[in-house]
């Protein structure tokens, strides 16, 4: 099982007990409430990660749920050999990459933008909110950024999101992707080179 590989694979990593690991250990000792605390603590960052990676709100919600179920089921085998988030994102990345591999044919066209309210706001509205034209330009701008990231191969995409948005170190990203640190650095470098080229023509965000 992946959780076994995860707990085994993290041997040798730093053994600092962070807040997540402390909660997980208490949960392991039988404090069921600590599992709920873990869910509340990591639900948001995990959802953000999944959403950026699979670009579909419904799917990312299901995947997040699956991650926590796996955390629950593997509580007996958990060993705090690395930061808790490293372990958590390794499960998450494994599930997300599997999903992306299995659904490669169905390219999600779902937009991650907030829904536009009907009628919108007039330009220079008195409430200080941007006008409809600015909002449409921003939406288009976001779509292009999203598209640039989506164009990356799945592992590169995961690496960029873990590095840029989850602010993980190379060592942690390497563990999440089951790569060496040097391979992870090369992967990230290539991904950023592609993004640099793709976003070169993109002007500053409107408004």
């Amino acid at each position: 099982m992946i959780e076994d590989q995860l707990t085994d694979g993290l041997a040798g990593a730093s053994a600092d007990v962070d807040a997540g690991a402390a909660l997980m250990l208490r949960f392991q000792q039988g404090e069921e409430a600590c599992f709920d605390a873990l869910v509340l603590r990591y639900q948001r960052p995990l959802t953000g990660y999944m959403l950026r990676l699979v670009r579909h709100p419904g799917v990312s919600e299901e995947l997040v749920q699956d991650v926590f179920l796996r955390v629950y089921r593997s509580r007996e085998r958990y060993r705090p050999q690395a930061r808790f988030t490293t372990w958590l994102y390794r499960i998450a990345t494994h599930l997300a990459l599997n999903y992306l591999r299995d659904h490669r044919a169905e390219a999600h066209q779902a937009s991650l933008d907030e829904p536009e309210t009907e009628g919108g706001h007039p330009p220079d509205a008195a409430d200080g909110r941007p006008g409809i034209e600015t909002r449409l330009m921003r939406r288009e701008w976001r779509r292009r950024v999203q598209q640039a990231i989506a164009s990356l191969p799945e592992r590169q995409r995961a690496a960029v999101i873990l590095h840029k948005y989850q602010e993980m170190e190379y060592r942690e990203i390497a563990q999440a992707l089951q790569l060496s640190v040097s391979a992870t650095k090369s992967l990230l470098f290539r991904a950023y080179e592609v993004l640099r080229g793709q976003l070169e023509q993109l002007e500053a965000m409107p408004g």
Binding site: R44, T47, G48, L51, R52, L112, D113, E114, W141, R142, V145, Q146, I149, V160, K164, L195, L199, L202, A204, M205
Partner: peptide, 10 residues
Amino acid sequence: SALDAWQPET
């Protein structure tokens, strides 16, 4: 800066 500004609503 482009990547920084991409914050999908969760």
